[in-house]
Design a protein around this nucleic acid. Structure first.
Length: 428
RNA sequence: GGUGAGGUGGCCGAGUGGUUUAAGGCGCACGCUUGGAAAGCGUGUGUACGGUAACGUACCGAGGGUUCGAAUCCCUCUCUCACCGCCA
């Protein structure tokens, strides 16, 4: 959610920024609603004020008990005021709902340095790390590698549930688990995050707060009962919502949390994309990094989160590149996003394995997460950020493909070996 | 799942229909006092929206309702605690 005061004070500037990401802001519509809203609020409040005064007067009249005849008259006037109040409030609520509907559908403002563009081709590469390995044999993709060993079974996933689900077995299942342990440990011990464990089912309010609702309901799995719970599409939702409606003391900032969860995405709009393999599954695991920081420190925090995610790929020896998403490619709630893309030899290209975003006050405004600014003594919105550190399934794919041997066995990266009882290779 | 008791400001806690615009205490901040401190005294101490301001309005777990008037009465939900049942 954007600050309505900002739209009020410099509508052209805001509209221009939103154009960068392909959103047309209807300034006239907002201004009209705003004007109407304030008039109605004013009217409603003075009626309430009058009503309160009457109620008080009545209390006095009754306690003095000397104005028996006046009481019915007062009562009548009170009744009139009540009706007027109800009417005014209804009008006010109607406009408020319209205003909120529109405001909640406006995406975040991109940062000034976000490159223009309409899709991923316009993203800006900011660095590369590692050199893709030269293979002396024909590389297999992870699907073939998994099939060879029988440790990656998409047929079983399809039988148990449906397409885009999979079963891992043996060494692959173990390495998948080892990866998430390694990631959590690194973030805790080396990067100073606190590990949290959170619900995988969330309510509508939580999803609204982080920006998945109301606009992106079709991407979510919803439980079929009257409680309206949803499966989390990312740990970002429950973890960020830990602090919903809270005022945080300045001494506690920055708050850095890491969390390993399964993620569930319906991905209604992506049929035909990455149908093969575990790149795009309805269920996958991810280790998430979430930070709550003072507003002046969020740009720096985004760089740190990106570093923390990249550190894992470096330790695993996986070549990657980091890109800054262009205006047309950044998500609804983000003001700036770095994607980290890992090298997949079977595709001969870099594929997204992490997405790190600065939301500035966009989520905090919806979630009412504030900190007490010592300079002003007042509660002010803080900034939220998050990043994948990393998508576990995709990391597994990258390890399998980059560490494959000619016979289809997979070398285990040194750093993971101690998480796998010293094992050095997964034999087909 | 059943029964019972609860949810009031940073914290404790009063408040069962009308001078409560939430008593009192603790804590905190500032001031007075002091060589300094403690004690004492005084003042202040929530959030949001509107207003240059004075101030107004809303908020006593959430949402509805009754009433001229609701922290207080009624309904639904939710969370906490206790006991029982069930369960990994």
């Amino acid at each position: 959610m954007l600050d309505i005061k900002l739209i009020r004070s410099e509508p052209e500037k805001i509209a221009a920024k939103l154009v960068i990401r392909g959103f047309v802001l209807d300034v006239k519509y907002i201004n009209g609603l705003e004007r109407e809203y304030r008039q109605l609020q004013d009217a409603s409040q003075s009626l309430q004020s009058e009503r309160n005064a009457y109620a008080k007067m009545m209390g006095k009249a009754i306690s003095e008990a000397k104005t028996q005849e006046e009481i019915p008259l007062l009562k009548e006037r009170g009744e009139e005021l009540k009706q007027a109040c109800i009417h005014a409030e209804e009008e006010l609520n109607k406009i408020q709902d319209q205003l909120e509907d529109y405001m909640s559908g406006i995406p975040n403002l991109p940062d000034d340095h976000v490159p223009p563009g309409t899709n991923e081709d316009d993203n800006l590469e900011i660095r590369r790390w590692g050199k893709p390995r030269d293979f002396t044999f024909e590389v297999k993709d992870h699907v073939d590698l998994g099939e060879l060993s029988g440790m990656l079974d998409f047929q079983a996933g399809a039988k148990i549930t449906g397409s885009r689900f999979s079963v891992m077995r043996g060494g692959i299942a173990r390495m998948h688990r080892a990866l998430s342990q390694f990631m959590l440990d690194t973030h805790q011990i080396e990067h100073g995050y606190e590990e949290v464990n959170v619900p995988y089912l969330v309510n509508r309010e939580s999803l609204y707060g982080t920006g998945q609702l109301p606009k992106f309901e079709e991407d979510l799995f919803k439980l079929q009962d009257e409680r309206e719970f949803y499966l989390i599409p990312t740990a970002e939702v429950p973890v960020t919502n830990i602090y919903r409606n809270e005022i945080i003391d300045a001494s506690q900032l920055p708050i850095k949390l890491t969390c390993h969860t399964p993620c569930f995405r319906s991905e209604a709009g992506s049929y035909g994309k990455d149908t093969r393999g575990m790149i795009r599954q309805h269920q996958f695991e991810k280790v998430e990094l979430v930070q709550f920081v003072e507003p002046t420190k969020s740009a720096q925090a985004l760089d740190l989160i990106t570093d923390h995610a990249e550190a894992l790929l470096q330790k695993l020896g996986l070549p990657y590149r980091t890109v800054m998403l262009c205006g047309g490619d950044i998500g609804f709630s983000a003001s700036c996003t770095h994607d980290i893309e890992v090298w997949l030899p079977s595709q001969k290209r870099y594929r997204e394995i992490s997405s790190c975003s600065n939301f500035r006050a966009f989520q905090a405004r919806r979630l009412k997460i504030r900190w007490r600014n010592p300079e002003t003594g007042k509660p002010e919105l803080l900034h939220t950020l998050n990043g994948s550190g990393l998508a576990v399934g995709r990391t597994l794919v990258a390890v399998m493909e980059n560490y494959q041997l000619e016979d289809g066995s997979i070398e285990i990266p040194k750093i993971l070996q101690r998480y796998m009882g010293g094992q050095t290779v997964i034999s087909s």
